[in-house]
């Protein structure tokens, strides 16, 4: 898989620091699962995190802290230990990364799609934790365009299947559009088939102008 569009550098750092909410973390980890380049980038950012952590002035632990912890380990036993290499997650269909499969099951076709506009289907993914963001799948028919729009907040779109094109180029499977709220774009789905995307979007706190309001029913946010 050749990936042309990657994570923003600021996103790599935020993900490594643990600053993204669950919706955005799922989209980022789904891309990272497919992208060697961003996986390395995250590792480098985590290396920075490790060095910063190593550099804090140590806090005293109190007498016998190690013994107390070993006692706890002995009480629980070694059952929580991983003595064998972890098994990879159950193989998902191509284009369905493991971090996403955990939330929607093993097939993109079997999710509960609902038609939100002609040629546009949507599936909301509910998350165990409440966040200020929504996570959903979008499937848009080939040849369709989404009217030019900005976003009410940060938005990330990961292409799972098919492709679209906008001002920033062609986005095929594995590509991520990591846009901040000031960017406007007008995606056109390529003619050879529908495009399925995973989207995390900050719940907009304000709506800008008519277009955003027109789009609202399309995205249902």
């Amino acid at each position: 898989m050749t990936i042309a569009h990657h994570l923003d550098d600021a996103t790599v750092l935020r993900y490594a620091a643990g600053d993204l909410d669950e919706a955005f973390a799922i989209v980022v980890s789904s891309h990272v699962a497919m992208c060697d380049q961003c996986r390395k980038a995250v590792r480098d950012a985590e290396t920075a995190g490790g060095l910063l952590m190593e550099d804090v002035s140590p806090a005293p632990l109190g007498e016998g802290a190690f013994e107390r912890m070993m006692e706890r380990i002995e009480t629980v036993g070694e059952e929580g230990s991983i003595r064998a290499k972890a098994k990879p997650p159950a193989p998902a269909q191509p284009g369905l990364p493991a971090p996403l499969a955990r939330y929607i099951g093993s097939s993109l076709e079997d999710v509960k799609w609902r038609t939100v506009a002609p040629g546009v289907r949507k599936c909301d993914i509910s998350l165990p934790t409440k966040t200020g963001s929504s996570l959903f799948l979008l499937q848009i028919n080939s040849g369709m365009s989404i009217p030019e729009h900005g976003h009410g907040g940060d938005e990330m779109t990961l292409v799972l299947k098919g492709a679209y094109r906008d001002e920033f180029g062609r986005f095929g499977a594995g590509d991520i559009a990591d846009l901040d709220e000031h960017i406007e774009h007008q995606p056109h789905v390529e003619p050879d088939g529908p495009c399925t995307c995973l989207v995390a979007a900050q719940t907009p706190t304000r709506f800008r102008g008519l277009l955003m309001r027109l789009l609202q029913p399309v995205f249902g946010i």
Partner: peptide, 28 residues
């Protein structure tokens, strides 16, 4: 070692202090 221990501490921070989920990180 510091990188690895940092990721474990970060995941604990996500799960326990932010009350979110570190599962996406574990899957990666």
């Amino acid at each position: 070692a510091s990188t690895w221990i940092f990721t474990i501490a970060r995941n604990a921070r996500i799960d326990r202090l932010r009350r979110s989920s570190s599962q996406p990180y574990l899957d990666v």
